[in-house]
Write a protein that binds this DNA or RNA. Structure first.
Length: 419
DNA sequence: TCTGGGGTCCTAGGACCC
DNA sequence: TCTGGGGTCCTAGGACCC
């Protein structure tokens, strides 16, 4: 059996842990630059605030309904996620961390020794008491069915106690009939449209389609999903693998038209890419750089461009990455446009332990040491070391007007309790 | 005025090889 | 009129996920 454990309204719950007065109140968390709603408490969902809602369009509604609004605090959410996953790992040796707030647990043979429902309830209690985060658990013979069970556990929390188990054919059938086709894991908007036009409205009808047909229309991905949903184990647990691509992409707080500003931002993104590569222990050989104008402003001239540039050798040195990224920027930059977003994606990643010797070009061996020192200083001093190409005065800043403290990772931002 | 960021996988088609 | 038959590798684009 597989369990899918999912944190309820994760980002909103993280904010609540350190601010219990938010309990039972509507809470939303915004994306970078305080742009869109990316997380909502149940109370906020009940106010019909959709996922992705532009914050400026909902300001009035927030005010009228006393909605508590937060900028996203990834330092906090990332750390809370790590804590939750650590606790879950105590319940089984086989765990796949699927996203920041979800994990699959393999409970093979556990049903012979434990009552799975009580086991799930214990997980909920442990995570709640040690981190403050509420979770829901779906348990079933396959991953896709565990996803379905999880939805049921959450939807009927009062009745299920947050744990739902699919362990018999009648239960499977009932659960699949209940699941709307668009809510099935792996069925997105496009597939949903196509299936609805064929009058396939729920997961049970999807499972009854012919294999060949599913394969033809939805590729092998769809077929695997169908088999897994029907109870045949097709998707297995995967050790959380190294990333194959690493990206840093950001919208600017305003539009930039001059090259110097873009150059500074792209340099900063390249440096961030370097940090992420070093954290994973990877080098990259190919950088893709892209540039976009503001597509919401159709009254302005539009331009989008992207280019791939090879690094001279596999590297994670911020210095080399900046040089490479700027080469790319030079090639795609055009004067006369107002740019709103830029990004860099590092591709063709290899382990940094694996040294490749090139005939004519090699990295200056001092880079490795230098980067190590920079990373250590930046960890201790919270990002104080910068490179010459960066804006030292930091005239730009992402908009984060409602940022909470880094309660769990910074000593000087600890929660203060007055007695 | 204001509209996120970061990933994965698959397929089709082109370039190239023998 | 008629123009082979395999392969591999790469990329762009499109679907999906959170």
């Amino acid at each position: 059996m597989y369990a899918l454990v999912d944190c309820n309204n994760f980002y909103a719950s993280c904010e609540r842990v350190f601010n219990p007065s938010l309990e039972n109140k509507p809470v939303v968390v915004l994306s970078n630059n305080d742009g869109c709603v990316i997380a909502r408490s149940n109370e906020a969902k009940a106010l019909d605030i959709p996922m992705g809602a532009p914050a400026f369009q909902y300001e009035k509604l927030f005010e009228r309904n006393g909605v508590y609004v937060f900028s996203s605090n990834y330092a906090l959410y990332g750390d809370m996620s790590r804590r939750v996953m650590n606790i879950l790992s105590r319940f089984t040796p086989d765990i796949e961390i699927y996203s920041i707030d979800e994990a699959f647990l393999l409970l093979e043979g556990f049903e012979e020794h434990f009552d799975l429902y009580s086991y799930g309830r214990e997980m909920i209690k442990a995570v709640r008491s040690k981190t403050g985060i509420p979770i829901s658990i779906g348990i079933a013979p396959t991953k896709a069915l565990a996803k379905v069970a999880n939805k049921i556990a959450k939807k009927f929390a009062a009745r299920t106690g947050g744990v739902y188990i699919i362990d018999a054919p009648e239960k499977t059938r009932k659960a699949l009939l209940w699941t709307k086709i668009g809510d099935v894991w792996g069925i997105g908007r496009q597939y949903e449209k196509r299936l609805l036009s064929l009058n396939i409205k729920n997961a049970q009808q999807f499972v009854e389609l012919h294999d060949e047909y599913v394969r033809k229309e939805f590729s092998v991905v769809g077929l695997r999903l169908k088999r897994d949903l029907s109870g045949l184990t097709t998707l297995s647990l995967e050790a959380t693998p190294l990333k194959k691509n690493i990206a840093v992409t950001r919208a600017f707080e305003s539009m930039y038209s001059n090259y110097a500003e873009l150059k500074e931002r792209v340099s900063t993104y390249a440096i961030k890419i370097g940090e992420k590569l070093r954290r994973q222990g990877s080098n990259c050989s190919l950088l893709q750089v892209f540039l976009l104008t503001n597509s919401f402003r159709q009254d302005l001239k539009q331009y989008r461009a992207s280019i791939s540039v090879y690094t001279p050798y596999p590297t994670n040195s911020s210095i080399t990455l900046v040089k490479t990224a700027l080469t790319g920027l030079d090639m795609i930059y055009k004067e006369g446009y107002q740019y709103k977003k830029a990004g860099i994606i590092a591709m063709k990643l290899t382990p940094s332990t694996q040294k490749q010797f090139k005939l004519f070009s090699q990295e200056n061996p001092k880079h490795e040491q230098l980067m190590k020192v920079v990373d250590q200083l930046n960890f201790k001093e919270n990002g104080k070391v910068k490179f010459g190409g960066q804006d030292l005065g930091r005239t730009w800043k992402i908009k984060q007007e409602k940022l909470s403290n880094k309660f769990s990772t910074r000593l000087n931002e600890l929660i203060i309790i007055k007695i």
